[in-house]
Simulated assay, not measured.
Amino acid sequence: MRCMVIIKATRESEAGVMPSEQLLAAMGKFNEELVKAGVMLAGEGLQPSAKGVRVQFSGSSRMVVDGPFAETKELIAGFWLWQVKSMDEAIAWVRRCPNPFEGDSEIEIRPVFEPEDFGEEFTPELREQEERLRAQIAARS
């Protein structure tokens, strides 16, 4: 199963406080372990929400809202995309992860939808389109 592992933002990460050299080295080592194990598909840190925007949808209208966003506990500071056998395996990897911040922090694990999760609504034509798009993305890498 694929899962997204979400590193929740903190006041410090939202303020632009950069990780220490020690933490960067520890995360680098952890990422190497993930890659060697064939778990890590992607992973990145994100800039503070002050540098981002949200696009709000209401019917056919769109409204752009500039950051920063107030609810730090709902913001994301970084993510990984992992391929694991089970949620238990993902949890085991997160338990080995260095604490992403100096103080308290939180990491959320969410399964990624797979084609079979969508049922009959995901027609053979839509599946073919999805596969074609994934192949195009892979070819660019």
Rank of each mutant, 00 (worst) to 15 (best):
E12G: 08
D104G: 15
A37I: 03
T10M: 07
D66G: 02
C3F: 07
E131T: 13
E130G: 12
F113H: 06
E131S: 14
K29N: 08
L46T: 04
S58P: 05
Q22C: 04
G16L: 07
S58H: 14
A37Y: 04
L24W: 04
T10Q: 14
M87G: 02
S61A: 11
G78V: 09
Q22V: 12
E128N: 10
F57S: 10
A92S: 15
M63D: 09
V5H: 00
F57M: 14
L126T: 12
K51F: 08
E125I: 08
F69S: 09
V53E: 11
W93K: 02
D104R: 13
S13L: 13
E106P: 05
E125G: 10
Q22D: 15
I107H: 06
A26G: 05
E125L: 09
V39K: 01
V84A: 01
F57R: 12
G103I: 13
E130F: 14
M4S: 05
R132W: 10
S105P: 11
E71R: 12
E120H: 12
Q22P: 05
G43I: 02
L75R: 13
V39N: 04
P111C: 01
P19I: 11
A9G: 07
I107N: 07
A92K: 12
Q136M: 12
S105V: 02
P68H: 03
I6M: 06
G38C: 06
M87L: 11
E102M: 13
E102D: 09
V5S: 01
P124S: 10
F113C: 00
L24D: 11
D66P: 03
K29M: 08
W93S: 01
Q136A: 12
A9K: 06
D104A: 15
A26D: 15
P111S: 02
E116D: 14
E102K: 11
K29V: 09
R2D: 00
L23I: 06
T10K: 08
